[in-house]
Design a protein around this nucleic acid. Structure first.
Lengths: 337, 337
DNA sequence: GCTTGGCATCGTAACGTTACCGGATTCGAC
DNA sequence: GTCGAATCCGGTAACGTTACGATGCCAAGC
């Protein structure tokens, strides 16, 4: 039907009076085929525009040459996480370079994460999975390890099992962010968290607590914002804090959208970052550099994270029983330009 | 290898002493199978966790149940286009709802767009293609029509051929943006364009020209910024304009990143939007609402664009020879909150 | 001359699915 | 009691690919 008839091995074989087997082997430079035959086969293959049929191969070999990334989409907001875009860019490009195509499986907040993964691995349509948004005791890890499905996680979790992951050292980053604010004289420091049960938020909180404990500052729970931040909710949350009787003098933002929301709240009150409230932020998209504000920034190259995820997954597929690779990305704060 | 042995039709058939054919038919509620048999088959299928093998089916039927979106990635910058994220979200969710999985094929600026499409359609790994970033006289349209591959384009082009597309009426939007700036008294109006050969930029320019011609204002080429805008280049471009002897009093931004760059240039000079320079912008991510500036905004729901693209593509796949569906999205400007 | 062994190639089967045709049983109608 | 039709099911082949064993051939060794 579509695109007329595609060239296949049988046609090439017929044209050269060879067997399908020989053609198949010649095209992958099998050592059992005479070099001159290889040359003839490749010439014809190129002429007729032969491209191996993905499904025939997948059916026979069990390899799909497809990787699937499970990404949560916050349909409540226009943008869930700006850093997801460079992550997707990195993932797709790295996958392509490695000879895989990348399929994206979006989950909505209504989807059960475990069920999603289960359906994916049953469908047998990918050689490997990339899972994100790890939660405490994430059940997907055990499930995937048990089933022997190659996977890599973006983020760690608090399980005793070894599994392959790439993660950003949120604990250290939050620690340094809090210290940075203390260095500027802040003692009432607000901490922005995105998702409550998120593993990233948990480690962020741990770094914050460590810095506060070292400085002997008691934790004020009202300064810790937990749960599902959007630009709107971030602005509303910080506005409430600013309106309180003892407002914060420092703020550690979780990401670009959280920062924009907080800046919005400040702007409406005529407050200026760096003067009235000190701000440090995560910003993986270099957005903060272009905001007219005096803000300290920590950034991670998310495209690079995508590349690393694919690399780890690739090695996992090549050697499913080998040692698990884990990558923990450190980072450093830089002051705004 | 992976995940042990998957349940297949043969196993279910053996367990029930039925033929593979009957099981296959029962699972799709074929009218030729006795209802009680259907029930028995479905019960066993559910128990053993049967999921149809994608590749077996694809090989037999020629249907892959996969859609591929060809998306350009500007690897030069961290973020190419923020609106791409909600677009991807809409595409993936709509594809899933329609029973397809969505594969993303990223192209770098080094890739030849035509060659990319050619490789994709030869690989026969998708039932339909979504192409974006249309250029003038886009050769991919003819190629895909000739090959009979179902596709939908995000954006129009200047060909005489009818083909399915979803597009935003950039001409009208740019026209209204220019008029809006004129209403505020601007006569020297700068126009931001993103990609030089882009079809979207061409229509934007046309709308700008129409508004300027109606007002009898001659076009000053130096006020039209063409080519590959990033936040950095946008800031540098607008800074140059502000430094000129006859700086613009109005600016129409192309998207969120262009806006951020321009705001940055203004901020460094101590200029204030709405007072020194009037600004209107495209903003499909509602980012501008959270910037402390007095800016007029035009927004389009990109997730909705994704849904519409999938819907058009779906109808195209269902009826390849039917009339081509085209959707042109209008929009309205709203002042900033 | 007969075997040995390496080389180049071939034939067959299989992956899981569905399309197509054919066969068996039942039932009502003449 | 025979016939046609309806209902339900089975067998075979095929999609395009690769794995595996088999086959023919020629040179070298005894």
């Amino acid at each position: 039907m579509k695109s007329g008839d595609m060239a296949n091995l049988k046609q090439i074989a017929a044209e050269l009076s060879l067997s399908v087997t020989t053609v198949s082997r010649a095209l992958k430079d099998g050592p059992e085929v005479h070099p001159s035959t290889v040359a003839r086969v490749k010439e014809v293959a190129k002429r007729v525009g032969y491209v191996p049929n993905h499904h025939g191969r997948a059916l026979k070999t069990g390899q799909t040459l497809t990787l699937t990334a499970v990404l949560p989409m916050e349909t409540r907001d226009y943008l869930s996480d700006l850093a997801k875009l460079p992550l997707i860019e990195g993932l797709t490009l790295a996958a392509r370079q490695a000879g895989y195509s990348l399929s994206i499986y979006s989950t909505t907040p209504d989807d059960d994460p475990v069920e999603s993964v289960q359906r994916l691995l049953q469908a047998h349509s990918a050689d490997g999975l990339i899972i994100t948004r790890m939660v405490s005791g994430d059940p997907r890890v055990k499930l995937l390890l048990d089933q022997g499905i190659p996977f890599v996680a973006f983020g760690r979790t608090d399980l005793d099992i070894a599994y392959p992951y790439v993660d950003i050292d949120n604990e250290q980053i939050a620690y340094e962010a809090t210290r940075r604010l203390m260095d500027k004289g802040c003692r009432r420091i607000a901490l922005q968290l995105l998702v409550q049960k998120d593993q990233a938020s948990a480690t962020r909180l741990a770094g914050y607590r460590r810095a506060m404990a070292e400085a002997g500052i008691p934790i004020d729970q009202s300064l810790i914002g937990d749960g599902t931040f959007t630009m709107e909710s971030s602005a509303a949350w910080f506005d409430r804090l600013l309106a309180s009787s003892d407002p914060p003098t420092g703020l550690a933002c979780a990401n670009e959208l959280g920062l924009l929301g907080a800046l919005h709240a400040l702007g409406r009150r005529g407050l200026v970052p760096g003067r009235d409230v000190h701000i440090v932020t995560r910003d993986n998209t270099r957005l903060a550099r272009f905001l007219p504000a005096n803000i300290d920034v920590h950034s991670v190259d998310m495209a690079d994270v995508g590349h690393k995820l694919i690399a780890v997954l690739e090695s996992r597929i090549a050697n499913p029983l080998g040692p698990v690779a884990t990558i923990l990305l450190q980072g450093r704060f830089e002051p705004a330009e």
